[in-house]
């Protein structure tokens, strides 16, 4: 199976019906000095199999937008549709189910479960969602170069290794949408590139949508599209 998408395939996916639709999203944080608006009416779409880089300076709201799309936080206003499910109207229970079954998240700080081994971490979300596929897990383990590390605990891994486990965990569930928040932020350039290549290969293999927040223009250039967040609004590039 080819893991690199052809230009024709990409063209088709851009024009396909959007799998993710975000409309007029607003979010502000209250502080003792008053509310600080972070997002002020953000909107975009993402088709299945497409990838989108979200760039912007530190504090521009990239992570906030990712958290809202990932059903991890509540928006003040606006709508998020994932596969026609209106996330903003869902109950806490239903949002948890969406996160479990449809979304894979790669956090900047990895957020692996420290008491579980690499293998256990990799399969954890898939098992939660009832979609554990041992063949797929073996393939992920192999492709991510984690075979030798399978019995280790997160604290025994380097940053790059932990990040590969985090990517594997997010993809093991075969999500509709993969979210990555500065996925190489803690890695050096070479390691970051390697991890990114792996991630993109696997995203192409699963056909999921990929939304990545990064401040690196170089990394952003590797995705199909990129948008920039400035003053709480999206500026196309």
């Amino acid at each position: 199976m080819s893991i690199h998408a052809t230009p024709e395939h990409l063209e088709a996916t851009w024009k396909a019906a959007p799998m993710l639709r975000v409309e007029g999203l607003c979010k502000s944080y209250s502080t003792p000095q008053g509310a600080i608006p972070v997002l002020r009416g953000v909107g975009f779409t993402l088709a299945a199999g497409a990838s989108l880089a979200l760039t912007g300076e530190s504090g521009s709201g990239k992570s906030t937008l990712l958290h809202l799309v990932g059903a991890l936080d509540d928006a003040d206003a606006g709508e998020i549709f994932l596969d026609d499910a209106r996330l903003t109207l869902l109950s806490e229970h239903a949002r948890a189910a969406v996160r479990r079954e449809k979304i894979g998240v790669v956090f900047q700080q990895f957020n692996l479960i420290p008491s579980l081994t690499v293998t256990e971490n990799l399969g954890f979300q898939a098992r939660l969602a009832g979609r554990y596929d041992s063949a797929w897990q073996d393939e992920l383990t192999h492709r991510l170069g984690l075979t030798e590390l399978s019995g280790r605990y997160p604290e025994e891994l380097s940053g790059g290794q932990q990040q590969r486990v985090a990517i594997g965990r997010a993809l093991a569930v075969r999500p509709k949408l993969l979210l990555a928040d500065e996925p190489t932020g803690n890695l050096d350039e070479a390691s970051g590139d390697k991890v990114m290549t792996l991630a993109l290969d696997l995203v192409a293999a699963t056909g999921c949508g990929f939304l990545m927040a990064t401040h690196s223009e170089r990394l952003a250039a590797r995705l199909q599209r990129r948008v920039r967040l400035e003053s709480g609004l999206l500026a196309p590039q």
Partner: peptide, 16 residues
């Protein structure tokens, strides 16, 4: 606590 948050982020509902 970090594990619990991760579990929540991975889709475990509070009652579960």
């Amino acid at each position: 606590l970090p594990t619990l948050r991760t579990l929540r982020a991975l889709g475990v509902a509070p009652p579960n």
